[in-house]
């Protein structure tokens, strides 16, 4: 939870200090409009393939904090001990989720006993054992889940997200 509140604060600070970055971006865009359009021409965003952890780093039912597709989008990797939808690894039991609640952007926290993600903002509950299904809640989408790949060395890569992440109108900023 402490990590979570910090994140909200961090979001606010970045929001407040964002104008300088925006001005620079705008200046760049106005000089090269043709290139900017071409770069945006694809139908979907290009997700980075990011190494998040190794299977050895995970213990059952202990979420590991990660971020994807960039460090402003917090998430977790979770080893559930049994095959689950979207699960990877030798036991198809490793999943990853964005932990910003898709309702109002509060950070969800993991309850190890219930094995659910819970949002302190408005009491929404998500089930990582059913692909982030909203068990009950205020969001109009299920929890964004990572598309994961595990290589022969057990390295876990995230290579996409299946829902829009809260706080951004493009999953890759």
């Amino acid at each position: 939870m402490r990590r979570c509140s910090k994140l909200v604060e961090m979001g606010r600070r970045q929001f407040l200090s964002g104008s300088a970055v925006a001005a620079a971006t705008a200046a760049g865009a106005s000089i090269m409009p043709a290139e900017a359009k071409a770069a945006n021409g694809q139908a979907r965003v290009n997700y980075p393939s990011n190494r998040l952890a190794n299977v050895e780093d995970l213990s059952e039912n202990e979420p590991l904090n990660v971020a994807y597709p960039d460090d402003q989008a917090p998430g977790v990797l979770l080893k559930l001990g049994q095959s689950v939808p979207g699960g990877v690894g030798p036991d198809e039991d490793i999943v990853g989720f964005c932990t910003l609640c898709p309702h109002q952007g509060y950070p969800v926290s993991y309850n190890t006993e219930a094995r659910t993600f819970n949002c302190p903002g408005h009491y929404s509950v998500f089930d990582p054992e059913q692909a982030g299904s909203q068990v009950w809640g205020q969001a109009t989408q299920n929890l964004p889940q990572y598309i994961l790949r595990v290589d022969e060395d057990g390295e876990i890569y995230a290579e996409g997200v299946d829902e829009l992440i809260y706080g951004r109108l493009s999953n890759v900023l």
């Binding site: 909200v8 979001g11 606010r12 970045q14 929001f15 964002g18 104008s19 970055v21 925006a22 971006t25 402003q72 989008a73 109002q104 952007g105 509060y106 903002g121 809260y166 706080g167 951004r168 109108l169 900023l173």
Partner: peptide
């Protein structure tokens, strides 16, 4: 500035 992550309860998402 929508090139930045918006904070919780944002009117801009």
């Amino acid at each position: 500035d929508l090139s930045q992550q918006q904070y919780a309860e944002s009117p801009a998402w």
